[in-house]
Design a protein around this nucleic acid. Structure first.
Lengths: 211, 211
DNA sequence: TTGTGTGAATCCCTTCACAGCG
DNA sequence: CGCTGTGAAGGGATTCACACAA
C-alpha cells in the first residue's frame, strides 16, 4: 500500500506526533499543516506531502482533526500497540534507558534485562531481575521479545546481535560503535553520540572559518 | 573555502575516521576508496566525492595514505584539538555519558558538571564536583566551556540553553525532547531515542505488511 | 474564503564514467 | 596498469502553485 518512504519522512512523522501532544488543544479540534510545520523545522507543503503518502485524512479549509491525525500517525509508525523490549547490557547506558520515562509512556515495555557481569546478575531492577547472557535465547522466546536494546561493549555486540536475531528478535537499537551484521529483514538503528559530537565540532569549526 | 556540506556527508566522514582506526594497518600504508566504502554503507565513488570537497589528498593508482587521511579528517571535523565540555544534568544519562570511554578518547574533555538537585550538588565525580545551576555562567566563562551536553528534564532545558548560549557556549548536544530555540550560529544536535525506536517499529510494521 | 491534496518544477545528492596522474 | 578526482547524468526529495472541497 505504501510506497518507499525515506527515513527523513519517518523522522518528521515522529515529530508531528510529538507536536500534537504539546499542542495544548483538545483532540476534537484541528491543526493546519502550517501550524505543524512551525513546530518542526519544516514547511507546510512538506507536512502535507508527508501525510499524503498514507492517504488523505485532512479536511480542506479546516486542517487535520487532532485525535484522528494522532491515531493515524500511531498506526503508521506502528506505535498503536505495546512493543516488548529486552535490555541487554545493564551498565550506565542501560540503567539510564531503563529509568527513561518517555520509554514506557510511548509503548515500549522492558520485559527482560541481561548482563554478563556476575556481580549484576540476580540484582532487582524494579519488577525485573538481571539475567545472565546464557538466558537470552530462552527469554526472547518465552517472553516474546521483539526489540532489543543493545548497550554492551563493542566486542560483545555482534555475538549478542546474532543470537537474538536467531531467536526471533525483529529490530535492534544499537549503542555499540560498530556496524552490526544482521539479515536485511532486521532493522538496526545506531545511536552514535561521538558522531553527533563530531557534527557539532564540524559545524562550529566551519562557522568560524567559513564566514 | 568549503562549499555547503550536507549533514549526510559529515556523518560519513565521521565514519571514515572510525574505519581508519579499526583497519588494523600501519599509518604509512594506504587505503582505497573501495575499502573505505565497504566498511561504511556506501560506495567508492561516494567516498571520493566526499573527500574531494576538501581538497585532493589521495594518490592516483595507490589510494590514500592512512595517517595523512586521518589527520585531514580530524582537521575537517574539527577534532584535531580538545573540546571543553560541561555536563548539565547529573542524572542517569549524565552519568552514563561521563563514564563513556569513547568520550574522552575522542578529544572531548568534561570540565564541569551541573545539577539542580541539592542532594547531588557537592558530590565528587572523579576529579570534579557537581555544581549548582547558579554557577553555570561563571563556569562557562572561567573554564572556557565550548560545548554543553544538556541532559535535564524538558521543562528546564530551554532556560539552561538560553543561559549557556548567552555565556558563550558554541554548541549543544541536547537530550531533552524539545526543539531548543537558540541563535542560528549555535548548532544543536538532538539525541532522540524515542524517534529512533519509532523508526524501528515503523520499519518492522512496514516490512511485515508490505512484503 | 480557507487550507488540503497533488502534479510539475526545482533543487540537491548520488552515481556514472572517464580523463589523467602515478 | 590502478585508483583518484570530477564534470555530467540520473534519481529522489522538497518546494511551488493551483485545482478543488468544505
Amino acid at each position: 500500500m505504501t510506497r518507499r518512504i525515506p527515513a527523513s519522512t519517518i523522522r518528521r512523522l515522529s515529530h508531528y506526533l510529538r507536536s500534537l501532544e504539546d499542542l495544548g488543544r483538545e483532540g476534537g479540534e484541528t491543526v493546519s499543516s502550517e501550524e505543524l510545520a512551525n513546530r518542526g523545522q519544516t514547511t507546510a507543503a512538506q507536512v502535507r506531502k508527508d501525510l499524503s503518502h498514507f492517504g488523505s485524512f485532512g479536511k480542506r479549509g479546516l486542517g487535520y482533526r487532532i485525535d484522528e491525525l494522532r491515531e493515524r500517525l500511531r498506526q503508521i509508525l506502528g506505535v498503536d500497540r505495546v512493543w516488548k523490549v529486552a535490555l541487554v547490557g545493564a551498565g550506565r547506558i542501560g540503567s539510564a534507558l531503563f529509568e527513561y520515562p518517555a520509554f514506557e509512556s510511548r509503548g515500549y515495555e522492558c520485559v527482560a534485562i541481561v548482563d554478563s557481569d556476575p556481580q549484576k546478575i540476580g540484582a532487582r531492577w524494579g519488577e525485573l531481575t538481571v539475567q545472565g547472557p546464557d538466558e537470552i535465547e530462552r527469554l526472547v522466546a518465552e517472553l516474546g521479545v521483539e526489540l532489543v536494546i543493545l548497550a554492551v561493549p563493542a566486542q560483545a555486540a555482534q555475538d549478542i546481535a546474532t543470537r537474538v536475531v536467531r531467536a526471533g528478535v525483529k529490530g535492534i537499537l544499537n549503542f555499540a560503535p560498530i556496524r552490526l551484521k544482521v539479515p536485511p529483514t532486521v532493522p538496526v538503528e545506531d545511536v552514535n553520540l561521538v558522531m553527533q559530537l563530531e557534527a557539532l565540532s564540524f559545524a562550529i569549526t566551519q562557522h568560524g572559518s567559513g564566514a
